[in-house]
Design a binder for these strands. Structure first.
Length: 446
RNA sequence: CGGGGCGUGGCGCAGCCUGGUAGCGCGACGGUUUUGGGUACCGUAGGUCGUAGGUUCGAAUCCUAUCGCCCCGACCA
C-alpha cells in the first residue's frame, strides 16, 4: 500500500477522552473512531489488525477441529425465555422490539441459539463430539463503557460451543480449548495466563480466564512467578488425544494463578514468598464447562448407544477479538507509539523514502515495494511529500515492526537502512539483503 | 446506577466568575523553503459557542430543562 493512497488519519495531538495508552494510540494512529459510547468504527488500519487476529483465531480453531459458522447478531427473545436467561441477564442485554412488537435482542452471547440449532439437527451420539464456533459482533449494554475497544458495548468475539455425550468428553473439549487458546495467544505475540475464574451469568463449575498482564488491566491478579516461564512453543499436540491435552492443562494450571474474584489468600501464601506476584491483567478469553444447563432447559438430547435420550454436555469458550487489539497495544508500545508483534502487524514493513521526488530514491523504493510484494508481504510505502521526521514519526506511531529507510546518501553507497521498531537498532545493507532479511523474519510467522 | 466533570472551527484549548454577538495552538488549503527525526515563513478557508426554553436593550457567558460524552465507584469478553 502506498500511504499517499491510503486512508490513515493520524492525529498529532491526543484526544482528551482517551485515558489509557491503547485507546490513545488507536485514536492517534487512525485505527478507530468513536461513534457513540462504547461503539467504534474500525478505520482501515484498525480493521486490518482486527482481521489479522481473526485469521489467527480461525486457523487455530481449524487446527483443533472446531467448525466455523455464523449466527445472527439479532435474536428472538423466545429462545432466551426458554433458557430462563431473558429475565436473568438483566439490563446488560439490549432489548429491541420489531415492527410487530416482537421481543428481540442484540445477542450478548449465543448459547441459546446454538443449542437450538443443535437440537434441530442432531439426534444421535454418532454425531458427537461437535464443536461449533463463530466470530460475530456482540452487544452488552455496559453501564459504563471505557478504555476504548477494551470495554466497548459492541465488541467482536469468537465464541464456541462444544456438544459431547458425556462429562468426560466435554472436559476433554474443555482441555482442548485451553491448549488451542494458549497457542492462539502465543501466535499473536501475547502471553495469556489461564487463571481460575468465576462463571458469572454463563453458569457452570469449571472455568478459566486467560489474562494478559498489563498495568492498565482491570482485574487484579495473583500468581506464582513460575507460570510466566511457561511457553507453549512449537510443540505438536494431537488435539484428539485426551492425555496430551490433559497434560498441557495440568502444566499450565497447576501453579497458583487467580484473579481477585477467586483469590485465596491462604493458598497464595503457601507459595514461596519470592515467587508471589500481584499484578493487573486484561481478560482476553474464557472457557467454561457447564454440563447440561442449557441442554436440560432447551431439550438438547441425543440417543445414546442404548437408544436412551440423554441431554448433551456442553461448554462454551470465548476470545475477545476486538479487545485483543487493545490488549496487544497495552502490552506492546512505547512513548512513540505502537509496536506490533509480527503475527498481527497490519503491514509487514514500512518503506520510508527520505527524499520524495529524487529519481534514485523513488526508484529504489519502488523496487523494494515490488520485491516485498512478490514475496507475499505487504509493505506500507510512505511516498508522501513530507519531511523525513514526519515520516519517521508516523511509522513509529502506527508501529510496523520493521522499517526500511531509503535516501540518496545511503543509495550512493548502495545501502538502505533496516530498523527494528522494537529495539530501535538500525543496520545498513543492500536493498536485496533487506528484502531477504524481512522475508526471513516472516517465514516463521506467516 | 451513585458521585464528579465536560460539551466553543477537523483536533487540543482559552473566553464564562465580573453579559456588550469569539480567540489561540495544531491540522487543512495555496505559496516559498528541498529539507535524513513532526522545518520555517507568508497567505487563505473554516465556528456563531450540544439542543430547547427563559431572564435581559443585549447571552458562549446568568437560570431551567434536555441530549451527548468523559472520569471515580459498584458490574462485565
Amino acid at each position: 500500500m502506498r500511504l499517499s493512497r491510503y486512508f490513515l488519519p493520524v492525529l498529532k495531538e491526543t484526544p482528551a477522552d482517551a485515558q489509557i495508552a491503547s485507546h490513545r494510540l488507536m485514536l492517534r494512529a487512525g485505527m478507530i473512531k468513536q461513534s457513540s459510547a462504547g461503539i467504534y468504527s474500525w478505520l482501515p488500519l484498525g480493521y486490518k489488525v482486527l482481521k489479522r487476529i481473526e485469521q489467527i483465531v480461525h486457523e487455530e480453531q481449524a487446527r483443533a477441529g472446531h467448525i466455523p459458522m455464523l449466527m445472527p447478531t439479532l435474536q428472538s427473545a423466545d429462545l432466551w425465555k426458554e433458557s430462563g436467561r431473558y429475565d436473568a441477564y438483566g439490563p446488560e442485554m439490549l432489548r429491541i422490539k420489531d415492527r410487530h412488537e416482537r421481543d428481540m435482542l442484540y445477542g450478548p452471547t449465543n448459547e441459546e441459539m446454538v443449542t437450538d440449532i443443535f437440537r434441530s439437527h442432531v439426534g444421535s451420539y454418532k454425531d458427537l463430539p461437535l464443536t461449533l464456533y463463530h466470530i460475530q459482533w456482540k452487544f452488552r449494554d455496559e453501564i459504563r463503557p471505557r478504555f476504548g475497544v477494551m470495554r466497548g458495548r459492541e465488541f467482536l468475539m469468537k465464541d464456541g460451543y462444544n456438544f459431547d455425550l458425556t462429562k468426560e468428553d466435554a472436559l476433554h473439549a474443555y482441555n482442548r480449548h485451553l491448549v488451542s487458546y494458549l497457542r492462539t495467544y502465543e501466535r499473536m505475540g501475547l502471553q495469556a495466563i489461564p487463571m481460575r475464574a468465576d462463571s458469572g451469568p454463563i453458569g457452570g463449575d469449571d472455568t478459566h480466564e486467560f489474562l494478559v498482564l498489563a498495568e492498565t488491566g482491570e482485574s487484579e491478579v495473583f500468581y506464582d512467578s513460575e507460570i510466566t516461564d511457561l511457553k507453549f512453543g512449537d510443540r505438536q499436540i494431537d488435539y484428539d488425544s485426551v492425555d496430551q491435552c490433559q497434560a498441557v492443562l495440568e502444566e499450565f494450571t497447576s501453579r497458583y494463578a487467580r484473579t481477585d474474584e477467586t483469590h485465596d489468600e491462604a493458598l497464595f501464601n503457601a507459595i514461596p514468598e519470592e515467587r508471589r506476584r500481584t499484578a493487573r491483567g486484561i481478560e482476553v478469553g474464557q472457557i467454561f464447562y457447564f454440563g447440561t444447563k442449557y441442554s436440560d432447559a432447551m431439550g438438547a438430547v441425543v440417543a445414546d448407544r442404548d437408544g436412551t435420550r440423554v441431554p448433551v454436555h456442553m461448554g462454551s469458550h470465548g476470545i475477545g477479538v476486538s479487545r485483543l487489539v487493545g490488549a496487544l497495544i497495552e502490552a506492546n508500545h512505547d512513548d512513540n507509539g505502537i509496536i506490533w508483534p509480527e503475527g498481527v502487524t497490519p503491514f509487514h514493513c514500512g518503506i520510508v523514502n527520505l527524499k520524495q521526488g529524487d529519481a534514485e530514491a523513488d526508484g529504489a523504493c519502488e523496487s523494494l515495494y515490488a520485491a516485498l510484494t512478490v514475496l507475499g508481504l505487504e509493505p506500507l510505502y510512505d511516498d508522501r511529500e513530507e519531511r523525513a521526521g514526519a515520516k519517521f514519526a508516523t511509522m513509529d506511531l502506527i508501529g510496523l515492526p520493521w522499517r526500511i529507510t531509503v535516501g540518496p546518501r545511503g543509495l550512493k553507497n548502495g545501502v538502505v537502512e533496516l530498523t527494528s521498531r522494537r529495539t530501535g537498532t538500525s543496520e545498513e545493507m543492500p536493498p536485496e539483503a533487506a528484502v531477504a532479511k524481512i522475508a526471513d523474519i516472516y517465514a516463521g510467522v506467516l
